[in-house]
Write a protein that binds this DNA or RNA. Structure first.
Lengths: 350, 350
DNA sequence: CTCTGGCACTCGGTAACCTTGAGTGCTAGA
DNA sequence: TCTAGCACTCAAGGTTACCGAGTGCCAGAG
């Protein structure tokens, strides 16, 4: 373990490097005044810190730069998220006051919000399972001879929708009966509830009703199975100097699957912050990730995260991620449609 | 006007510069063999082309680079879009064969497709007006005491949805009656059809039905009024060398409003291609835009476009944009849900 | 035993300088 | 009107020298 002075020096180095992106000299740390020692003493300590793997010297006449291990120590020793700055907090407040039940758009905008609050890129992973809210309405609509659309409106205003292909053509009346049967079975229950409506006497109708319910209960089909919303990718171009870094990071940000896996891995390992190579994605070696899960009706549903340079403002990112995931959980849960009053929404002129 | 030889030289310079991103020398053009003249002759011609503003010399001992005017000439003299490469064409075919009725996701994926086909960034602007398709189903769902959700399923499988706030609480029965009234009035017609269902005898019900219909007919409320889907933004990082350029271009790509305006402006001016500064957006001075509108049921609905460096492969971009907008129009129009059996039928007509 | 001041040393960064060669403009002759 | 030849220009790349930030180490003070 590090003694107090080493820890203080390490923290000073990390903080300075976060600010300046430059190697930090012993003189700077000494002259900081937090601990009254001479640069020489700092140098000695820094030499030890380097041997222990917390610092790294780009070349022999340069200052020190924190290693991933150094950042890890720094993050672990953080007292917790910083309080969010007043303008950012206001932004978050405003945002969720206006939020609405259209889940996809909301998530997309959340990624934008998180990015503008932190000034890094933000990632929001949508729930992969369907919304667990209670079904408020369920309906089968015949689109063409062989295609029926199953539409369910959930308690929080989200709409689940599945297209079904029919092997045999059904009459409008049959589709209607199936629709009624499926609705009377599932409306008022959550999509967790499995089982089929009782037989109507028409096998084709029964099959359709059952198929539709199954489709709605299952995850969305194929294409972009988990949705990922990336906000503020452009900020990564500001965060790095080297074009090659920018390229590889942006490349990763467009690979939804990789992102989902990345965030999931980090969470699965019980981490909130993954620094540098800790997450094992080589192209993101210069990046850190700050993640938090969000919940829908008490169950872990998706993930929000911030992707920034290793030298990111961890305290602020932690704060932003925490508050956004909390508010998002609330906005997505059944009790709160986010449709609450504030400014002029759609309004019935009765 | 340019004589034949000057035009040929200019074309050669543009083509070479598109390939190499380097200034083009007289020797290269001469040795190309298309016109059998010596480098010196080419030089003389190039000097004239420079005076006329078609070419530009970065410094006195460098080759020539085309100006925006030079690119404009090149594009105008293109015989038309190149045939799409076989792998790209296959990609497009596969994509639209699998396409489905969820319009938003489809547009988002279209932007990805267009980007991977062209290797530039792609922009798809969603229709700002609601889908004009016929209403297949319409329903009002009471979410909370004061919030009702109006959901309409359209002929092509798209779902329009509006949240309504009620000044007074209505009973479930009242909402149901309003739902039925609104449905019987609008189902089977397009959302163009205005008017209200006949009076039911309950003013509150009539008001709700009428409000719901109005809301559905109108555009989606506020937030991200026109949706813009950007695909392959990361490719811009590959297209440019200068970090500053990358930054400003990526910045623009995240400003939805600016993008919508940009594409709209270009189209309004009757252009398909806007080169360099022609579009007047300073941060995109090194970029060109290739755009095409797409239609839904015969009416111009949205825009697809490709954003690349000025030295982009115009012929391929033109081809890709054209085919994608055509297929997209078809997929979004009522006749074709795109829900058709995957690899089966795919017309080559359009 | 710990800290500090002093000093020599290291090495990246910058500037000055030179060389190279690609590419031009010009001119005289076919 | 075209072309061959030639002198000229100038970015790019390599070499050298210098500067100075920052270190490591040591000897002496507390």
């Amino acid at each position: 373990m590090l003694d107090d002075r080493k820890a203080a020096i390490l923290r000073a180095v990390v903080e300075c490097h976060i600010k300046t992106a430059q190697p930090v000299s012993s003189a700077y740390v000494a002259q900081l005044g937090d601990l009254s020692v001479s640069p020489a003493t700092v140098r000695n300590e820094m030499a030890v810190l380097e041997q222990d793997g917390y610092l790294f010297q780009p070349h022999s006449s340069a200052g020190r730069v924190p290693t991933d291990k150094g950042y890890r120590f720094f993050v672990d020793s953080l007292s917790g998220p910083a309080p969010l700055g007043a303008p950012q907090a206001e932004l978050v407040r405003m945002f969720f006051a206006r939020a609405h039940g259209e889940i996809e758009r909301m998530l997309a905008e959340t990624s934008g919000l998180l990015s503008s609050v932190t000034d890094y890129a933000a990632v929001v992973v949508a729930p992969s399972a369907p919304e667990p809210g209670r079904v408020r309405s369920l309906q089968l609509v015949k689109l063409t001879a062989h295609v029926v659309l199953a539409v369910a409106v959930l308690g929080n205003g989200a709409v689940e929708r599945r297209a079904l292909e029919l092997p045999v053509e059904l009459t409008d009346a049959q589709v209607e009966r199936a629709s009624a049967a499926a609705a009377s079975f599932q409306v008022g229950a959550t999509l967790d509830k499995t089982g089929d409506p009782g037989p109507t006497g028409d096998t084709a109708v029964d099959t359709l009703a059952s198929t539709a319910l199954q489709a709605l209960r299952g995850p969305e089909p194929e294409v972009g199975t988990s949705h990922v919303f990336v906000g503020g990718a452009a900020r990564m171009a500001t965060a790095f100097e080297a074009v090659s870094t920018i390229r590889s990071v942006l490349g990763i940000l467009e690979q939804q699957y990789v992102l989902v896996t990345l965030l999931k891995d980090v969470l699965d390992r019980g981490l909130t912050v993954a620094i540098g190579t800790e997450h094992g994605l080589a192209p993101l070696a210069d990046c850190s990730v700050v993640v938090a899960p969000y919940e829908v009706d008490g169950e872990r549903a998706g993930t929000v995260g911030v992707l920034g340079p290793t030298r990111m403002h961890y305290d602020q990112a932690l704060a932003a991620v925490a508050i956004v995931s909390k508010k998002l959980s609330k906005a997505l849960s059944e009790g709160d449609q986010g449709l609450s009053p504030p400014s002029g929404r759609q309004r019935s002129t009765g």
